[in-house]
Design a protein around this nucleic acid. Structure first.
Lengths: 343, 343
DNA sequence: TTGTCAGCCGGAATCGATACCACTAGCGTA
DNA sequence: TACGCTAGTGGTATCGATTCCGGCTGACAA
């Protein structure tokens, strides 16, 4: 076929050129390519031959403008270098792509103001939907804006007022964390330190689980919660502070993978034997937990699944389903040797 | 101001509505908003007031169609859940966004055919540029296609024929790996096992460094290279195979973070004391290397920098610079206790 | 022979913004 | 007074597709 010679003539060809080559109207080309029923076999053949000859591929920009949908969704997270978000992104992107959507990605770099800026940007780009993991839940300007817009939204493990009308995919942090705390209590621990990041849903839920289990068992609140940023630095500082307290905890829970890394660095430096001198639980399984000596107990969840579910909920909304949905995904406590009998 | 009442009237307002409200022509609105010099102060004021009143924000889709540029770039990688790529993505996205570009992201899931599909998709979306980390360098259809298109391309640590005209950002794997090998040789190791993934540039360069250092020092090629996929499974299998060989290596190098994880799992299971019974070097630093007992020597590099550089090279190409550029970024060998005297 | 209807096709408006061209008003100059 | 020039403005074609509407053709029934 002489396709390539003609095809190389210019960068792209447009629908008019196809129509001219086939000797038909643009509307007919459009009908053939979009599978409209009012097309004769002869017409179909001629158009497809011209399309082949020119190597024509429709311009999605023009399609989007005319059809009023871009087949794209915006994805905003605070830090993609955190494997948690990378895995969620992977699940979401794969699912959306299989449904014909492309993903616009942006990283807010931990800056809550950028969350809003990126949402507005994706609106200007006419994204058909948004998947968001806000840096800060309470940011007033952001929340107000989300309540105002009509683009379908799915939020990832965050709280948001009903008024925003967003679907949500949540992890059941309470279940996993409660199991972890009960495990520690059963081992005789009473003074438990919990390190968490910014007060967004995961941190809030983890804290509540701790408080609730203590309350249920009629125990005095002899736990110590350290809130801060979601970083290795805070993990390290909080760990040091907890260990240096007058009555240091006998068990430590790090509420997030970055916090865990910082925490383990300090514990390593101080030469503390996990499981014997101090029990330790991490959150969000990463490679290190199994390979660490001793292996580290964790509350884990399936991040890629979280992304896939988010994409599925968004697809439903984009296909016209009105009601926002909330989906709760399980977490699981995995006991390992880092937890031992209280001293 | 009565902005909100009017603003909420409809989802979006377009330029015609702004023009009508201001009582001017659309072309004047366009001029004001795009900073054209032919605008009187009065005109500017009236238009901006109308824009404010309606909460107007231009539709980037229509702009892109007319201006013939989308201010977006496509980013294609094989597996975003690998922290290596996530960090590169972060660097690239941040740099591009600061320059006014949005990023279209897609994950090929290790399937070389999808690389090509995604490139074509982003062309249809009229991306102004592409950043690619191909799953397989030699894929003929993909390479041919890349040679044909005129969209600026930057490839991430991959080889590609000159004809593609792509800029490239490369890591100097040879430098770091050579240092690692020399370090092992100095410790008396002669039988060295190297585990690598698919034969793309990083794997090829790491292997060459090993061979070259042996040759330089006039040593017999008593190394053993195991090629496979870039996965923990291959890391584990190759490690087991190497250890079970008639003359097992006294030092092991894992050419990639996933491979390292699989390898360490096997070494842990077999209870092998790193640094004493077997020396070990990893590639691409991750949290685990410092926290492992003993800490693991690695060849490391700055992944986020790689992403930033890629974005910068792409920006230059998109701004009209014709010549493709190749940039080599340093790698560094970090000796740690996992390397010890040969038995 | 005429009317009806289904099938198929072309023409043109449209999506929302940009940019070129033509025009006007106002000013300076010969 | 007539003319040219410039700053500022409006009208309109255009980017590349979709879609509505109307018209043509041929088959079939009355």
């Amino acid at each position: 076929m002489s396709a390539s010679s003609t095809e190389l003539r210019r960068g792209r060809s447009n629908m008019r050129e196809v129509a001219e080559l086939a000797g038909v109207a643009m509307s007919s080309v459009s009908r053939v390519l979009s599978g409209h029923p009012d097309v004769s076999p002869l017409m179909r053949e001629r158009v497809l031959a011209a399309v082949e000859e020119l190597g024509y591929r429709p311009d999605m920009l023009a399609q989007s403008l005319r059809r009023r949908e871009t087949m794209s969704v915006g994805f905003v997270v605070g830090d993609i270098s955190n494997s948690l978000f990378a895995e969620i992104l992977k699940g979401a992107e794969t699912t959306l792509r299989e449904a014909g959507y492309s993903m616009l990605f942006s990283d807010s770099g931990g800056d809550p103001e950028l969350d809003l800026a990126h949402v507005r940007l994706f609106e200007q780009r006419r994204a058909d939907g948004l998947i968001l993991s806000l840096v800060r839940e309470g940011q007033p300007a952001t929340v107000q804006h989300l309540e105002r817009i009509e683009t379908p939204i799915v939020v990832l493990d965050r709280e948001l007022p009903e008024a925003a009308g967003a679907s949500r995919v949540l992890s059941d942090h309470r279940a996993g964390m409660s199991a972890a705390v009960r495990h520690l209590l059963a081992l005789g621990h009473r003074r438990i330190g919990l390190i968490v990041g910014q007060p967004v849903r995961p941190a809030v839920e983890r804290r509540r689980a701790l408080e609730q289990v203590f309350a249920e068992q009629g125990l005095a609140p002899t736990y110590d919660v350290r809130e801060g940023t979601f970083s290795a630095e805070h993990g390290a500082r909080a760990t040091a502070a907890l260990l240096d307290a007058p009555e240091p905890p006998t068990a430590l829970i790090a509420g997030g993978n970055q916090l865990m890394i910082g925490s383990l660095q300090v514990l390593r430096e101080r030469g503390i034997a996990l499981g014997r001198e101090l029990s330790f639980v991490g959150c969000d399984d990463i490679a290190i937990t199994e390979l660490f000596q001793p292996p580290i107990a964790v509350v884990r969840r399936d991040n890629e699944l979280l992304g896939r579910r988010a994409a599925e909920l968004l697809l439903r909304r984009m296909r016209g389903e009105q009601e926002p949905v909330v989906e709760l995904l399980p977490t699981e406590f995995v006991p390992r040797a880092s937890c031992g009998q209280a001293p």
